[in-house]
Simulated assay, not measured.
Amino acid sequence: MSFKYFIYGALCISAFSCTPRQEINYMKDIDGIALENSIKNSRVDFQPGDQLIISISAKDMEVVKIFNQNYSSSTNVAQYTLPSSNNLPQATPVSGPTYTVDTNGDIVFPQVGKVSTKNENIETFRAKLSDLIRVYVKDPVVDVKLINFKVSVLGEVTKPGTYVIPDGTTTLLGALGLAGDLTPYGVRNNVLVVRNIDGQISKERIDLTSANFINSPFYYLKQNDVVYVQPNAVREKASRVDPNTGLYISVASVIASITVGILALIKN
Protein backbone atom coordinates (compact mmCIF):
# COMPACT_ATOMS: atom_id res chain seq x y z
CA MET A 1 0.00 0.00 0.00
CA SER A 2 2.77 2.43 0.93
CA PHE A 3 4.53 1.75 -2.40
CA LYS A 4 1.32 2.65 -4.22
CA TYR A 5 1.16 6.02 -2.42
CA PHE A 6 4.84 6.62 -3.17
CA ILE A 7 4.26 6.17 -6.90
CA TYR A 8 1.19 8.42 -6.78
CA GLY A 9 3.14 11.15 -5.00
CA ALA A 10 6.02 10.94 -7.46
CA LEU A 11 3.63 11.36 -10.39
CA CYS A 12 2.03 14.42 -8.76
CA ILE A 13 5.41 16.06 -8.19
CA SER A 14 6.40 15.40 -11.79
CA ALA A 15 3.18 16.94 -13.07
CA PHE A 16 3.79 20.19 -11.22
CA SER A 17 7.53 20.49 -11.68
CA CYS A 18 8.01 19.69 -15.36
CA THR A 19 7.65 22.31 -18.07
CA PRO A 20 5.20 21.15 -20.76
CA ARG A 21 6.48 20.71 -24.28
CA GLN A 22 6.10 23.86 -26.30
CA GLU A 23 7.35 25.21 -29.60
CA ILE A 24 10.51 27.20 -28.85
CA ASN A 25 11.85 27.70 -32.38
CA TYR A 26 11.71 31.25 -33.73
CA MET A 27 10.41 32.05 -37.22
CA LYS A 28 10.20 28.38 -38.19
CA ASP A 29 8.65 29.25 -41.57
CA ILE A 30 11.05 32.08 -42.42
CA ASP A 31 11.89 30.67 -45.85
CA GLY A 32 8.31 31.21 -46.94
CA ILE A 33 8.21 34.90 -46.00
CA ALA A 34 9.33 37.83 -48.14
CA LEU A 35 12.01 39.38 -45.91
CA GLU A 36 12.24 42.53 -48.00
CA ASN A 37 8.79 43.56 -46.75
CA SER A 38 10.28 44.30 -43.33
CA ILE A 39 12.67 46.94 -44.67
CA LYS A 40 9.88 49.49 -44.91
CA ASN A 41 9.47 49.31 -41.12
CA SER A 42 13.15 49.95 -40.31
CA ARG A 43 12.96 53.75 -40.27
CA VAL A 44 13.06 55.16 -36.75
CA ASP A 45 12.15 58.86 -36.77
CA PHE A 46 13.33 61.29 -34.08
CA GLN A 47 10.89 62.34 -31.37
CA PRO A 48 10.76 65.30 -28.95
CA GLY A 49 13.05 64.62 -26.01
CA ASP A 50 15.57 62.62 -28.05
CA GLN A 51 19.17 63.45 -27.21
CA LEU A 52 21.59 63.65 -30.13
CA ILE A 53 25.36 63.72 -30.02
CA ILE A 54 26.49 65.59 -33.15
CA SER A 55 30.14 66.12 -33.98
CA ILE A 56 31.64 67.71 -37.10
CA SER A 57 35.08 67.03 -38.49
CA ALA A 58 37.09 68.09 -41.55
CA LYS A 59 40.68 68.22 -42.80
CA ASP A 60 41.13 71.50 -40.94
CA MET A 61 39.60 70.97 -37.48
CA GLU A 62 39.97 74.66 -36.65
CA VAL A 63 37.43 75.48 -39.33
CA VAL A 64 34.77 73.23 -37.79
CA LYS A 65 35.55 74.20 -34.20
CA ILE A 66 32.57 76.54 -34.08
CA PHE A 67 30.20 73.66 -34.92
CA ASN A 68 31.42 71.63 -31.95
CA GLN A 69 31.07 74.40 -29.35
CA ASN A 70 28.17 72.68 -27.61
CA TYR A 71 30.60 70.01 -26.38
CA SER A 72 30.33 69.14 -22.70
CA SER A 73 33.03 66.93 -21.22
CA SER A 74 30.61 65.94 -18.45
CA THR A 75 28.25 64.28 -20.92
CA ASN A 76 28.74 60.56 -20.42
CA VAL A 77 25.94 58.24 -21.43
CA ALA A 78 26.11 54.45 -21.10
CA GLN A 79 24.97 52.51 -24.14
CA TYR A 80 24.73 48.76 -24.52
CA THR A 81 26.60 46.97 -27.26
CA LEU A 82 25.60 43.56 -28.56
CA PRO A 83 28.19 40.92 -27.63
CA SER A 84 29.71 38.58 -30.21
CA SER A 85 29.36 35.62 -27.85
CA ASN A 86 26.76 34.42 -25.37
CA ASN A 87 27.94 36.91 -22.76
CA LEU A 88 25.58 39.60 -21.50
CA PRO A 89 25.72 42.99 -23.28
CA GLN A 90 28.39 45.42 -22.14
CA ALA A 91 27.86 49.12 -21.33
CA THR A 92 30.06 51.49 -23.33
CA PRO A 93 30.20 55.20 -22.40
CA VAL A 94 29.81 57.78 -25.19
CA SER A 95 30.23 61.54 -25.02
CA GLY A 96 30.21 64.61 -27.25
CA PRO A 97 28.27 67.76 -28.20
CA THR A 98 24.72 67.03 -27.09
CA TYR A 99 21.44 68.45 -28.43
CA THR A 100 17.90 67.77 -27.23
CA VAL A 101 15.01 67.72 -29.72
CA ASP A 102 12.43 70.24 -28.49
CA THR A 103 8.64 69.86 -28.46
CA ASN A 104 8.46 71.25 -32.00
CA GLY A 105 10.93 68.68 -33.26
CA ASP A 106 13.80 71.18 -33.65
CA ILE A 107 17.37 71.59 -32.43
CA VAL A 108 19.46 74.76 -32.47
CA PHE A 109 22.79 74.09 -34.15
CA PRO A 110 25.75 76.51 -33.97
CA GLN A 111 26.10 78.88 -36.94
CA VAL A 112 23.27 77.11 -38.79
CA GLY A 113 20.46 77.97 -36.38
CA LYS A 114 17.21 76.05 -35.94
CA VAL A 115 17.12 72.70 -37.72
CA SER A 116 13.99 70.53 -37.90
CA THR A 117 14.25 66.80 -37.15
CA LYS A 118 10.67 65.98 -38.12
CA ASN A 119 10.36 62.87 -40.27
CA GLU A 120 14.12 62.41 -40.02
CA ASN A 121 16.19 59.48 -38.80
CA ILE A 122 19.94 59.26 -38.22
CA GLU A 123 20.85 58.72 -41.88
CA THR A 124 18.59 61.39 -43.37
CA PHE A 125 19.40 63.95 -40.67
CA ARG A 126 23.13 63.38 -41.13
CA ALA A 127 22.75 64.12 -44.84
CA LYS A 128 20.62 67.19 -44.08
CA LEU A 129 23.21 68.64 -41.70
CA SER A 130 26.01 67.91 -44.15
CA ASP A 131 24.25 69.99 -46.80
CA LEU A 132 23.71 72.88 -44.36
CA ILE A 133 27.31 72.88 -43.11
CA ARG A 134 28.77 72.51 -46.60
CA VAL A 135 27.93 76.20 -47.11
CA TYR A 136 30.67 77.02 -44.59
CA VAL A 137 33.03 74.02 -44.78
CA LYS A 138 34.33 71.96 -47.66
CA ASP A 139 33.63 68.22 -47.35
CA PRO A 140 32.44 68.13 -43.73
CA VAL A 141 32.07 64.79 -41.96
CA VAL A 142 28.96 64.68 -39.76
CA ASP A 143 28.49 62.08 -37.05
CA VAL A 144 25.06 61.74 -35.38
CA LYS A 145 24.24 59.41 -32.50
CA LEU A 146 20.90 59.00 -30.72
CA ILE A 147 22.05 58.37 -27.15
CA ASN A 148 18.83 57.96 -25.17
CA PHE A 149 16.94 55.48 -27.35
CA LYS A 150 15.70 52.94 -24.86
CA VAL A 151 13.31 50.02 -24.65
CA SER A 152 12.13 47.97 -21.68
CA VAL A 153 12.00 44.18 -21.73
CA LEU A 154 9.98 42.64 -18.90
CA GLY A 155 8.53 39.31 -17.83
CA GLU A 156 9.96 35.88 -18.56
CA VAL A 157 13.38 36.86 -19.86
CA THR A 158 16.79 36.12 -18.38
CA LYS A 159 17.65 39.74 -17.57
CA PRO A 160 14.59 42.05 -17.53
CA GLY A 161 15.24 45.78 -17.51
CA THR A 162 15.53 48.96 -19.57
CA TYR A 163 18.20 49.07 -22.26
CA VAL A 164 19.75 52.04 -24.08
CA ILE A 165 20.31 51.00 -27.70
CA PRO A 166 23.35 52.13 -29.73
CA ASP A 167 22.59 53.83 -33.06
CA GLY A 168 18.94 54.31 -32.12
CA THR A 169 17.54 51.23 -33.82
CA THR A 170 16.80 47.67 -32.82
CA THR A 171 14.39 44.87 -33.61
CA LEU A 172 12.21 42.89 -31.24
CA LEU A 173 14.65 39.99 -31.47
CA GLY A 174 17.57 42.33 -30.80
CA ALA A 175 15.93 43.64 -27.62
CA LEU A 176 15.16 40.11 -26.45
CA GLY A 177 18.79 39.25 -27.10
CA LEU A 178 19.94 42.11 -24.88
CA ALA A 179 17.70 40.71 -22.15
CA GLY A 180 19.31 37.28 -22.46
CA ASP A 181 16.43 35.69 -24.43
CA LEU A 182 13.23 34.16 -23.06
CA THR A 183 13.35 31.71 -20.18
CA PRO A 184 11.93 28.20 -20.73
CA TYR A 185 8.74 29.46 -19.06
CA GLY A 186 8.16 32.34 -21.50
CA VAL A 187 5.21 32.13 -23.91
CA ARG A 188 6.77 32.51 -27.37
CA ASN A 189 3.63 32.88 -29.43
CA ASN A 190 2.10 35.77 -27.46
CA VAL A 191 4.77 38.43 -26.78
CA LEU A 192 3.23 41.84 -26.05
CA VAL A 193 4.74 45.09 -27.42
CA VAL A 194 3.33 48.38 -26.08
CA ARG A 195 4.08 51.68 -27.83
CA ASN A 196 3.40 55.30 -26.85
CA ILE A 197 3.62 57.89 -29.62
CA ASP A 198 2.49 61.41 -28.74
CA GLY A 199 0.30 60.06 -25.94
CA GLN A 200 -1.40 57.46 -28.16
CA ILE A 201 -0.99 53.94 -26.77
CA SER A 202 -0.90 51.05 -29.23
CA LYS A 203 -0.03 47.42 -28.69
CA GLU A 204 0.38 44.18 -30.57
CA ARG A 205 0.75 40.50 -29.70
CA ILE A 206 3.66 38.86 -31.53
CA ASP A 207 4.10 35.18 -32.37
CA LEU A 208 7.86 34.58 -32.40
CA THR A 209 7.41 31.09 -33.82
CA SER A 210 6.15 32.50 -37.11
CA ALA A 211 8.22 34.58 -39.52
CA ASN A 212 5.12 36.65 -40.36
CA PHE A 213 5.88 38.97 -37.48
CA ILE A 214 8.82 40.57 -39.35
CA ASN A 215 6.23 42.35 -41.47
CA SER A 216 4.68 43.94 -38.39
CA PRO A 217 5.29 47.63 -37.63
CA PHE A 218 6.32 46.37 -34.19
CA TYR A 219 9.21 44.29 -35.53
CA TYR A 220 11.47 47.36 -35.44
CA LEU A 221 11.10 48.88 -32.00
CA LYS A 222 10.65 52.59 -31.38
CA GLN A 223 11.68 54.90 -28.55
CA ASN A 224 10.35 53.79 -25.12
CA ASP A 225 8.65 50.63 -26.42
CA VAL A 226 7.86 48.05 -23.72
CA VAL A 227 8.18 44.34 -24.47
CA TYR A 228 6.46 41.92 -22.10
CA VAL A 229 6.90 38.15 -22.20
CA GLN A 230 4.11 36.48 -20.27
CA PRO A 231 4.75 33.34 -18.18
CA ASN A 232 3.24 30.02 -19.15
CA ALA A 233 0.68 28.13 -17.05
CA VAL A 234 3.35 26.22 -15.12
CA ARG A 235 5.08 29.43 -13.99
CA GLU A 236 1.79 31.09 -13.07
CA LYS A 237 0.74 28.06 -11.04
CA ALA A 238 4.11 27.96 -9.29
CA SER A 239 3.82 31.65 -8.38
CA ARG A 240 0.58 30.92 -6.52
CA VAL A 241 2.18 28.19 -4.43
CA ASP A 242 3.56 29.20 -1.02
CA PRO A 243 7.38 29.10 -1.36
CA ASN A 244 7.52 27.55 2.10
CA THR A 245 5.36 24.58 1.08
CA GLY A 246 8.38 22.29 0.90
CA LEU A 247 9.44 23.32 4.38
CA TYR A 248 5.95 22.69 5.74
CA ILE A 249 5.88 19.22 4.20
CA SER A 250 9.29 18.40 5.66
CA VAL A 251 8.25 19.54 9.13
CA ALA A 252 4.99 17.61 8.85
CA SER A 253 6.91 14.48 7.83
CA VAL A 254 9.22 14.78 10.84
CA ILE A 255 6.28 15.29 13.20
CA ALA A 256 4.48 12.31 11.66
CA SER A 257 7.57 10.13 12.08
CA ILE A 258 7.97 11.17 15.73
CA THR A 259 4.27 10.53 16.37
CA VAL A 260 4.47 7.05 14.84
CA GLY A 261 7.53 6.31 16.96
CA ILE A 262 5.84 7.44 20.14
CA LEU A 263 2.72 5.36 19.38
CA ALA A 264 4.90 2.32 18.75
CA LEU A 265 6.63 2.79 22.10
CA ILE A 266 3.29 3.17 23.88
CA LYS A 267 1.99 -0.08 22.36
CA ASN A 268 5.11 -1.88 23.52
Score class of each variant (00 low, 15 high):
Pro97Ala: 04
Ser152Thr: 13
Val137Thr: 02
Leu129Asn: 01
Leu132Pro: 01
Thr98Val: 09
Gly113Gln: 14
Pro166Lys: 11
Pro160Ser: 12
Val164Trp: 02
Lys150Pro: 01
Thr117Leu: 15
Lys150Leu: 05
Tyr163Glu: 11
Tyr185Pro: 01
Gly105Phe: 09
Ser152Trp: 04
Gly168Lys: 05
Val164Ala: 15
Tyr163Thr: 03
Asp102Leu: 00
Val164Glu: 01
Arg126Leu: 01
Gly161Ala: 14
Leu172Glu: 05
Glu120Trp: 07
Val101Leu: 02
Phe125Gly: 02
Ile147Leu: 05
Phe149Arg: 00
Ser152Cys: 10
Asn121Cys: 13
Val164Ile: 12
Asn189Gly: 05
Pro160Glu: 13
Val187His: 02
Lys128Glu: 04
Gly155Asn: 08
Val115Leu: 14
Val157Leu: 14
Gly186Val: 04
Ala91Leu: 09
Val112Gln: 07
Arg188Cys: 09
Asp143Glu: 06
Asp143Trp: 03
Pro140Met: 04
Leu82Ala: 15
Asn86Gly: 13
Thr98Glu: 10
Pro93Lys: 01
Ala91Ile: 03
Phe149Met: 12
Asn104Glu: 12
Ala175Ile: 05
Leu182His: 08
Pro89Val: 07
Leu88Met: 10
Pro97Phe: 01
Thr81Lys: 13
Gly105Ile: 02
Pro160Val: 15
Leu176Ser: 10
Gly177Met: 07
Leu88Asn: 08
Thr162Pro: 05
Leu132Met: 08
Asp167Gly: 08
Ile165Leu: 14
Asn104Gln: 07
Ile147Asn: 00
Ile147His: 04
Thr170His: 09
Glu156Thr: 08
Thr100Asp: 00
Gly105Tyr: 06
Thr124Phe: 06
Pro140Ala: 04
Val108Cys: 08
Ser116Lys: 14
Val137Met: 03
Lys118Tyr: 15
Leu146Trp: 07
Leu173Lys: 02
Asp143Phe: 09
Val135Ile: 06
Lys138Val: 09
Lys118Ser: 15
Lys118Phe: 14
Tyr185Lys: 09
Glu123Lys: 05
Arg188Met: 15
Asp167Cys: 02
Pro83Trp: 13
Tyr136Gly: 01
Val141Ile: 11
Ser84Phe: 13
Leu146Ile: 11
Gly186Trp: 05
Ser84Cys: 13
Lys138Gln: 09
Val137Phe: 02
Leu172Cys: 11
Gly113Ala: 11
Val115Phe: 13
Gly180Leu: 08
Val108Phe: 11
Lys118Leu: 15
Arg126Tyr: 00
Leu132Gly: 02
Asp102Pro: 01
Gln111Thr: 10
Val187Asn: 03
Thr183Asp: 06
Gly168Pro: 08
Val157Ala: 14
Lys114Asp: 09
Lys128Asn: 05
Asn87Glu: 13
Ile107Gly: 08
Gln90Trp: 03
Asp181Ala: 03
Thr92Glu: 01
Glu123Asn: 10
Asn189Pro: 00
Leu176Pro: 10
Thr124Gln: 04
Gly177Asp: 13
Asn148Lys: 10
Phe125Leu: 11
Asn189Arg: 02
Val142Gly: 06
Ser85Val: 07
Gly168Val: 04
Ile165Thr: 12
Asp131Arg: 03
